[in-house]
């Protein structure tokens, strides 16, 4: 027994030394590589808005966790709902770990439905992780009778939902309800959450679906009533999760819509990066999202921060771009 413990101790020591050695060479390699270099942070939208916020936030805080402390600059690359930036990462970006991108969460779905212009394969990009999870919420106006899920389901009167257009969450959620037999009608062409809230306030429509972050203020200001939600749970939401409602088919569709929400702000780098460098970037990404200053900044901007591992993201992408 003693011998066994002894060899175990020796083994652990050796393994430890070996691991330290490997880690040390890796750090040394990565440090050698990133020292004096500049990392480009490609943002899939124009300045302003959520993706831009997270891109800039990480660009400010990630460098201190990358050995060699490279400079980080932000480049906005809007277009075609994020497809332009994804194509760039798949083809033209340098494949050496000096280009990182925050891309659209729905890219896997766009790839599956073969949207025009898709030239990327999301599974070939290297995921770094996601910086936040997202929650989608269905709300109703205060000047109409529906207050609960059951009332919405039983409504004899057609319930009007304001929406931007197909492809947007504001359209997909009422469309799902409609498919599940609810008496709803989708009014399209009301672009942007704020315009949809005003349409409710004016009495043009009865409700809408929107991300929780952008709806929180309107719930307080305009007295909007939350009915149910999908995606990451929120303490402040006293309403049921979509997975507990709807028919069997509706639940499946809700799960499909909900999957990208788990990785709400996904970050990637290109394919073909040496494994140690990718590991460095992934751990720097994780460490930055647990950085006190970053969390403080996000809190002041009322943005949530939740790290999702690259492996989880890859799984979601795999399911969403291939299945069914």
């Amino acid at each position: 027994m003693k011998k066994f413990t002894g060899s175990l101790a020796l083994g652990s020591l050796l393994a430890g030394v070996a691991a330290w050695g490997v880690a040390n060479t890796q750090t040394a390699n990565a440090q050698g590589f990133y020292k004096g270099k500049t990392i480009k942070m490609v943002v899939r939208s124009a300045p302003g808005g959520g993706y831009d916020f997270y891109g800039r936030l990480l660009a400010r805080h990630m460098s201190k966790y990358i050995p060699g402390n490279p400079k980080m600059i932000v480049i906005n690359m809007p277009g075609a709902g994020g497809i332009v930036a994804a194509n760039y990462m798949a083809s033209r970006a340098k494949k050496n770990g000096t280009e990182i991108a925050v891309l659209t969460r729905e890219l896997a779905l766009a790839q599956r439905t073969k949207e025009v212009g898709v030239k990327y394969d999301l599974e070939k990009l290297s995921a770094l992780g996601s910086a936040a999870s997202s929650t989608f919420l269905v709300v109703m106006g205060k000047n109409q009778p529906i207050r609960t899920y059951q009332q919405l389901k039983d409504s004899k009167k057609t319930v009007l939902f304001g929406a931007t257009g197909p492809g947007s969450g504001s359209y997909q959620y009422p469309a799902l309800l409609k498919k599940d037999g609810f008496n709803v009608k989708i009014i399209t062409g009301i672009i942007g959450g704020s315009a949809r809230f005003l349409a409710i306030e004016r009495g043009d429509t009865h409700g809408t679906a929107n991300s929780y972050e952008s709806t929180r203020k309107a719930i307080k200001e305009l007295g909007l009533i939350p009915i149910f939600y999908n995606g990451a749970p929120h303490k402040a939401l006293p309403v049921p999760h979509m997975s507990t409602l709807l028919s069997k088919q509706g639940k499946q569709l809700a799960a499909l819509l909900g999957a990208p929400l788990a990785a709400g702000r996904p970050f990637y780098t290109t394919s073909g990066i040496p494994a140690d460098r990718l590991k460095t970037l992934r751990s720097a990404f994780k460490a930055a999202l647990h950085d006190k200053d970053l969390i403080k900044e996000a809190k002041r901007a009322k943005r949530n921060v939740a790290w999702t591992a690259a492996s989880v993201m890859e799984k979601v992408n795999h399911e969403n771009s291939r299945c069914i």
Partner: peptide
């Protein structure tokens, strides 16, 4: 006017501005 009346920014630039002002504790709206 719409930004102050409803807490709803009238343009994307104003949305960005008020996004920034929230950070220092200014919440648009009533």
């Amino acid at each position: 006017i719409p930004t102050l009346a409803f807490g709803i920014p009238g343009s994307s630039t104003l949305a960005l501005i008020f996004g920034g002002l929230i950070i220092v504790g200014i919440t648009p709206g009533r």
